[in-house]
Design a protein around this nucleic acid. Sequence first.
DNA 1: CCTACATGCTCTAGCCACTAGAGGATCAAC
DNA 2: GTTGATCCTCTAGTGGCTAGAGCATGTAGG
Lengths: 140, 140
Amino acid sequence: MKALSIGAVSRETGVKVPTIRFYEEIGLLPAPPRTESNRRTYGPADVRRLRFIRHARDLGFEVDAVRQLLALAAHPETPCASADELARAHLREIDEKIDRLVALREEVQAMIDGCEQETVRTCRVIEVLADHGGCLPGAR
Amino acid sequence: MKALSIGAVSRETGVKVPTIRFYEEIGLLPAPPRTESNRRTYGPADVRRLRFIRHARDLGFEVDAVRQLLALAAHPETPCASADELARAHLREIDEKIDRLVALREEVQAMIDGCEQETVRTCRVIEVLADHGGCLPGAR
DNA sequence: CCTACATGCTCTAGCCACTAGAGGATCAAC
DNA sequence: GTTGATCCTCTAGTGGCTAGAGCATGTAGG
């Protein structure tokens, strides 16, 4: 009926045209039928799928996780424990990232606070970087 | 006097051997002299520079920022305002990342909380992804 | 002195998730 | 019929490394 061009789908979903083609390439989105002149034609199901993908990506799920979530969404009768577990794992990752960033923030803030705004010779920022207290070789 | 091999420098600084070579390639670390058999030989200055680089990278400074910080560190007489500004800009970036992650965390948490652990058909995780409320096309 | 094995070298390719650009075909509107 | 938007494929680039192939050296034990 009303087949959509890739540009129309892009406007509908907010996913950029090259990204849609990329998702097709990596198998996130099925390859759609083409017109006589070789243009991709999409239907409503593709739009829904792309929106799903975009939401998951926006929430920071990795492509592999999105693939799993899509597979789960395709089987409404299965228990949702696996989707839940995916989300929980993702939450743990987010928490870890936040923790790391907060620790980092404090270190950078301390670096800035210590700086007396004179010359580089006495600059805390440079000094901290040049001789990081409590640093062990290989403690990465 | 006591020239260090790339492996020794790696152990001293905690920077992996291939990474040291990579830093040389991108011009963060000067190309060191070689032995007769073409092996890199490093001195104390290289170790200091690498440590500086590693600390800055550990603190999340991008390579370009590290380059600028190194240039500043090389001129002790210049005012440190630029180093300070680099660090402040970095702090702002960290804050933005934290804000975004915290917002994300809440959204994912809400998604998990709403899930009643039944089948995928009623799973909030899948549902939220499939139909994200308040979502505008292109609002990325 | 010989033999392992570690370490070094260069070069290429891969990771993630796209993004950018070249060079060309096709479509819609005027 | 012409302009300009959109589409196609293909290649290459981003950042910051990491991994591996295939080879040449260095070092320690026997």
